[in-house]
C-alpha cells in the first residue's frame, strides 16, 4: 500500500464526490487552519494534514479517520485560510462520503447524533426536540440514559416552565401537513445528489 501512494486517484475521487472537493489541491500546506482550529490538538489529523493525505492517495486512512467528525463549524479556518479553501465545508463533505462509504468510525458520537437528528427530522418533517434529547440520552443503554436525564433535569424543567418544551410531544408531537409529499421530495433530492456525487 505504502508504495502506491502519491497518485491522484483519490484526489480525483474527492473532487468528484465531496462538496468543494476541487479546492483540496489548492492547499499550500501553510498550516494556518491547524493552528486556528480550537479542536486542533484533539484530532488525529488536522485539516492541512488530511488534505496532504488525500493527495498522497491514502483513501482508507482519510475516510476512516475521526478527524472531520470533530469539526464544530466555527469557521475560524475558512476565515484565515490564505488560499481561501472552504475547509469547514470540505470537512463535512468528507464526513458524508465516509458515512456513505461505510468507513466512518463506529460509535463516533457526532456521527451517531447526526443520524438521530436526520431520522427525527425526516420522520414527520418537524424536529421533535423532546424525543431527540431522550434518544441521545439513552443511546448508550437504559442505566446511562437515566443518569443523563437526571443530570439534565433542571434544564428540562426550566424549558418547560418557559414554554419551550412541551411534555405532550412524547405522545407523537406536531407534524407537517403533507408528509408523503415531503418524503417524495427528499427521495428525489437524494437521487439527484447521489447521481451527481456518484454515490450508490
Amino acid at each position: 500500500m505504502s508504495e502506491m501512494k502519491y497518485h491522484n486517484n483519490f484526489l480525483k475521487e474527492v473532487e468528484e464526490r465531496v462538496e468543494e472537493g476541487h479546492m483540496v489541491k489548492m492547499c499550500m500546506q501553510c498550516g494556518v487552519c491547524s493552528g486556528s482550529c480550537p479542536f486542533g490538538p484533539h484530532w488525529a489529523h488536522p485539516p492541512q494534514e488530511l488534505f496532504m493525505m488525500i493527495r498522497a492517495g491514502k483513501r482508507e486512512e482519510v475516510l476512516s479517520s475521526d478527524s472531520m467528525w470533530m469539526c464544530t463549524s466555527c469557521y475560524q479556518c475558512i476565515v484565515r485560510c490564505p488560499r481561501k479553501l472552504p475547509i469547514t465545508h470540505i470537512m463535512h463533505g468528507l464526513a458524508y462520503l465516509a458515512k456513505r462509504e461505510g468507513l466512518a468510525p463506529k460509535g463516533q458520537p457526532t456521527a451517531e447524533f447526526g443520524q438521530m437528528f436526520w431520522d427525527n427530522l425526516t420522520k414527520d418533517g418537524r424536529v421533535n426536540e423532546l424525543k431527540l434529547s431522550l434518544s441521545l440520552y439513552f443511546k448508550d443503554g437504559f442505566g446511562q440514559g437515566v443518569k443523563n436525564a437526571m443530570a439534565m433535569q433542571s434544564v428540562g424543567m426550566g424549558l418547560m416552565k418557559a414554554g419551550r418544551l412541551n411534555p405532550m410531544e412524547i405522545l407523537g408531537g406536531h407534524k407537517i401537513k403533507d408528509k408523503s409529499g415531503f418524503h417524495a421530495m427528499l427521495k428525489k433530492a437524494r437521487e439527484i445528489e447521489d447521481a451527481r456525487r456518484k454515490l450508490a
Binding site: L11, M26, Q29, M52, R55
Partner: peptide, 8 residues
C-alpha cells in the same frame, strides 16, 4: 496546483 500538480 489548479492543474493538479501535487506538491509534497
Amino acid at each position: 496546483q489548479r492543474k493538479g500538480v501535487t506538491f509534497s
